[in-house]
């Protein structure tokens, strides 16, 4: 029983096929790395799952009730339990770390309930807990814009976790991080994958090796290979794609 099932999805921009008959599935509490050269369609793949891009054909089925995600808006999909971290860290720089986490906290999302919402002790405790998980306990009162690059990445991961999603889509979480920061990021993700599905898109093979999970290789918009890292890196087609040009 899979959590997310993508089957036969294609999308093209002005004749260019960004995704070509792609199929993919992932179960509950599974970690998956997605790799592929530039232009392989990794970001577009995430765009399709999160509702930002509508595919020309194919199906995207979600959860136990097998809902189709294709007719939902981005916000609805997010409320269904799919969280996404962008390639570039996107946190609300004008607001405090605390406010950022509070906004992401899983709660009612409607305008009226948000307007009259007051944080309960539980909520505050959850924010504290998340902050310590992402090593930002000391920074709660600071503006997010003042954080270092790596701290912003963590804050964004923290916001993802605050949403309590069933599926986490993480786009290049380790980009621009120092080695020690990477290590911490790895442990956050591995911890998260114990209770939910995590899809990590990454270039850095070292980072993926440390995640120690199944790997899906994308090439020209479709799945080229799938399996353990050692398995796929020994696949001649994968070597061809990565080194052959």
């Amino acid at each position: 029983m899979s959590l997310l099932e993508v089957s036969g999805v294609s999308v093209s921009f002005d004749g260019f096929k960004a995704i070509n008959n792609l199929s993919f599935q992932i179960g509950d509490a599974e970690m998956r790395a997605v790799i592929g050269p530039n232009g392989a369609g990794k970001t577009t793949f995430m765009d399709i799952i999160t509702g930002k891009t509508r595919p020309d054909e194919g199906r995207v089925i979600w959860g136990e009730k097998s809902k189709s995600l294709l007719s939902m808006s981005e916000a609805q999909i997010a409320r269904e339990g799919i969280g996404r971290k962008f390639q570039k860290p996107t946190v609300f720089e004008d607001q405090t770390v605390h406010a950022n986490l509070l906004m992401a906290l899983k709660n009612e999302r409607g305008p009226l309930s948000v307007l009259f919402w007051k944080p309960k002790p539980d909520d505050l405790a959850r924010v504290e807990a998340l902050a310590s998980e992402i090593a930002l306990s000391d920074q709660l009162a600071r503006k997010a814009g003042e954080l270092s690059h790596g701290q912003k990445q963590w804050l964004e991961i923290g916001m993802l976790l605050a949403q309590d999603p069933k599926l986490l889509l993480v786009d290049e979480p380790a980009a621009g991080m120092t080695p020690s920061e990477r290590e911490h990021t790895t442990s956050i993700l591995v911890e998260a994958a114990k209770t939910r599905a995590v899809v990590v898109v990454e270039h850095d093979m070292e980072f993926i090796r440390r995640l120690n999970c199944r790997v899906t290789v994308l090439h020209e918009g479709s799945v080229l290979a799938e399996g353990s890292l050692d398995h796929v890196t020994s696949d001649p087609r994968v070597i061809d794609v990565y080194l052959g040009r």
Binding site: E74, G83, G110, P111, V114, L115, W117
Partner: peptide, 28 residues
């Protein structure tokens, strides 16, 4: 001053991000 204000400023600064947090930006 409340969370609603947070969301408003969030929409101002990056409405796509707010959308991926599950808020219906249009409604706000």
């Amino acid at each position: 001053s409340g969370k609603f204000g947070s969301v408003m400023r969030g929409i101002r600064d990056d409405e796509a991000r707010v959308r991926f947090l599950g808020y219906s930006v249009e409604g706000y």
